[in-house]
């Protein structure tokens, strides 16, 4: 008797299991689909998404990057290489700036380290090439002509070097000391 009971219970379980999954399928027949038809439809990502890297410009349209080497120092895959140089007006800038995207893991540490908000990760993730060398992006490929995130930030307005404004003209600065005057 006990044996028959257990066989019947198993049978009932199986039938219920089948019915349950059919019910789920049936329910989804009447739902709105959540699959996005990529690449016909392209979803909008959040601004903070970590995809292809760009170099942005400051509000005056100048390169934000000052070639401080912090991004290349922090990069865990060593995919950034730079050489700094001095422009005639004293502004520090990268003579060349190279990112090897074949190595990049999009961790975003470079963006975190950047003191001038020059290097930024964008939501662009579509990144496949036929040749490995095509993944090597130079400054011309990286530099964009907008500010990216934090549009109003201008590093040289804060730093006390005489680029973008003379000494004493930056944010929170007193006029320069006159070393040849004894007046207080």
């Amino acid at each position: 008797m006990a044996q028959i009971k257990s066989v019947l219970r198993d049978l009932l379980d199986d039938v219920l299991g089948l019915a349950d999954s059919y019910a789920v399928t049936l329910k989804h027949l009447f739902r709105k689909p959540i699959t996005e038809q990529y690449p016909e439809y392209k979803r909008l990502f959040a601004e903070r998404t970590r995809g292809r890297i760009i170099l942005t410009r400051d509000p005056h349209g100048e390169e934000r990057c000052v070639a401080c080497y912090l991004c290349s120092a922090v990069c865990p895959t060593d995919c950034i290489s730079i050489e700094g140089a001095e422009r005639k007006d004293g502004r520090r800038y990268p003579l060349w700036f190279r990112i090897n995207f074949a190595r990049c893991i999009y961790c975003g540490l470079c963006e975190e380290a950047c003191p001038t908000l020059a290097i930024q990760l964008t939501p662009d993730f579509e990144f496949s090439k036929y040749g490995v060398l095509d993944f090597i992006y130079e400054k011309e490929d990286l530099l964009v002509d907008h500010q990216g995130k934090n549009a109003e930030y201008d590093y040289y307005r804060h730093a006390g070097v005489s680029v973008e404004g003379d000494k004493g003209e930056h944010i929170n600065e007193k006029p320069p000391v006159d070393v040849k005057s004894n007046l207080p």
Partner: peptide, 12 residues
Amino acid sequence: HPHDCPVCDEGG
């Protein structure tokens, strides 16, 4: 301090 370590060669 002028807070210009990124453009200062002494940085590091």
